[in-house]
Design a protein around this nucleic acid. Structure first.
Lengths: 209, 209
DNA sequence: CACCAAATAAAACACTTGTTTGAAACATAC
DNA sequence: GTATGTTTCAAACAAGTGTTTTATTTGGTG
């Protein structure tokens, strides 16, 4: 049996869609297994618990994403400081992100909505899990910005990175709905790629303020 | 009995805190009435349902906020276009926001976390309710930006406004946790006001890109 | 004081939730 | 082909949910 249409993959596919659509608490295991067309008990059999299933959904995205991001960061870490401009650094973040869409349709939007929800879970286990497991790439990313913008203090960098993350996650998480509004109002079609490219000059200008 | 410590107010206070802290679905009526020290049935008696309670929590914030914002917008709508710069327009949004903190401590952070959760509820009733009821102020706000930045296309304005909202909500919603990190790393104390003031140049520069 | 509507209280209701159980079906190796 | 370990399935479980019901208490009015 190929790695698609295994029970585990069917569960993950259904779960990530529904979690992004409705949220974690609002999505029951019965809804997930119903959509995945598998037995209810198979979630606990294969993943142990709902909590672990949520983490598994994130792992599948983050392993893929951080691996690609890490390659880009290695290249950039050997560049001189004057090459580390916001546009370049953002590209290192955005390219791996967009490549998710080549494997599964709408993956970027789903991933961003999941991140938004994980971020909202201020006190929950999920935020801790994600930062503990994938926080080191964010640190490397921060260091590159510090190197590229020595005229900014470290906490200016810290905060501006969060401004950028906010714009990215917020916009892309709602991009499906927003794209529909925009397309209706302004009568042109937009892809996720277009939305992001429109955003880069905005963020880069802010970084240079 | 003063308008504080009525049963309704005690419920609203407990609910808004817990909703912001844990989320809507993750907060049970028993937790709310337990914290508020009132009887379980009083929520349904005074508000009708949990759904209506959630809307009431938002109404209390939004009525206060949009009323102050509306006054500022009226003033700005009489200004000439060359006075409508990003810093000015952002101030019209931020001042009413900060004034929430004068009435209840941490109100800004709670309000922003609630907004973040409402925004995440992409398909839910809440987003529809908020936009239908308070969407017109956002429209007025958009029109002012279009007037102040005639060199930008309408959909550039549309998207950049969302970038700004993303930064604002994302940063302020997590500002409690982020402030702690920042204060520990850089050894200086930060107020919500400081976080926002640090943000304005970033956003304004992006607007002029 | 008696009366009545409004508010509070305790208990029960119907329902959904995540998880566990034990048997059946399946696959793999000897 | 039988035995063994893995996976699927239907059913049940205990716990927690929002809501309703039924009494009881409260506070003001005649």
């Amino acid at each position: 049996m190929s790695s698609h249409d295994t029970t585990q993959t069917k569960i993950l596919d259904a779960a990530e869609f529904l979690f992004a659509e409705r949220g974690f608490a609002e999505t029951s295991l019965r809804t997930i297994t119903g959509r995945a067309k598998v037995n209810l008990a198979s979630v606990n059999y294969h993943f142990g618990s709902k909590k672990s299933l949520i983490q598994a959904v994130f792992d599948r995205f983050l392993q893929d994403f951080t691996q690609q991001l890490s390659v880009r960061l290695e290249q950039l870490e050997q560049e001189p400081a004057n090459e580390l401009k916001a546009e370049t650094l953002l590209a290192a973040l955005i390219d791996p992100l967009l490549s998710l869409n080549t494997k599964r349709p709408n993956a970027v939007s789903i991933f961003m909505r999941l991140l938004g929800r994980a971020y909202a879970e201020t006190q929950g286990h999920l935020r801790r899990y994600v930062t503990e497991r994938y926080g080191h790439v964010l640190v490397r990313f921060t260091l590159l910005f510090q190197k590229g913008y020595p005229e900014l203090t470290n906490d200016q960098i810290f905060w501006r990175l969060h401004y950028m993350l906010g714009s990215l996650i917020f916009t892309l998480a709602g991009s499906d709905a927003l794209r529909q509004i925009s397309e209706a109002d302004f009568n042109r079609s937009l892809e996720v790629k277009d939305v992001i490219e429109e955003m880069v000059p905005f963020l880069a200008a802010g970084m240079k303020a």
